[in-house]
């Protein structure tokens, strides 16, 4: 065959799809809250559980549609479970060891995961009280990245029985 050109051994085959994504009315209340530095969840009108971040759709526990019952939660919360990340991996932005914690914000009935910093990983414990650390206000957008991380608030630990129902 012709050897005028370099032999082709490999080709690029990029694929992609462009979406116009809509957050929907309920998640939009959450995003709008973040723009103002507020944490907005939704309360189920039937079982009164508060979801944060709020779900578009129905309460997974009792099936009732989550209507526009906004509830401000936090900003402080309680560590319910946590994971100490010791393993380096490609694309890691934080030097291990660090703590990824499930945080039950005050007034919410479901934990959210966020980064826990300004504390030695060995000192993190279930029931520990934490507070958010916000990015500079001029950097805020409709994103949970407005909170760079959580840190211990210094409040007394919460007893396990007080959050056993929200694990």
């Amino acid at each position: 065959m012709s050897n005028e050109a370099e032999d082709v051994l490999r080709i690029r085959t990029p694929i992609g799809v462009d979406y116009a994504w809509s957050a929907g009315r309920r998640s939009s209340a959450y995003l709008n809250g973040l723009l103002e530095g507020r944490l907005i969840g939704k309360r189920c009108p039937s079982c009164t559980r508060v979801y944060f971040p709020p779900r578009n759709g129905n309460c997974p526990m009792c099936g009732v549609l989550l209507v526009d019952d906004d509830v401000e939660v936090g900003p402080n919360g309680t560590v319910t479970t946590f994971c100490v990340v010791n393993v380096p991996f490609l694309g890691q932005k934080i030097t291990p060891p660090y703590v990824a914690a499930t945080i039950l914000l005050d007034g919410a009935d479901i934990g959210m995961q966020h980064l826990l910093q300004e504390v030695d990983a060995a000192d993190v414990r279930m029931g520990m009280r934490v507070e958010p650390v916000w990015a500079p206000r001029e950097d805020w957008g409709p994103t949970m990245e407005n909170i760079t991380h959580f840190r211990p608030s210094g409040e007394p630990d919460v007893d396990f029985t007080d959050y056993a129902g929200q694990l």
Partner: peptide, 23 residues
């Protein structure tokens, strides 16, 4: 991002993979 009349947030979202393969 943009905010629609009903208060919904909308944003472009591109899902893409830069695949290459041997032939």
């Amino acid at each position: 991002y943009a905010i629609a009349e009903d208060g919904s947030f909308t944003a472009p979202l591109t899902l893409a993979y830069p695949y290459a393969r041997t032939v």
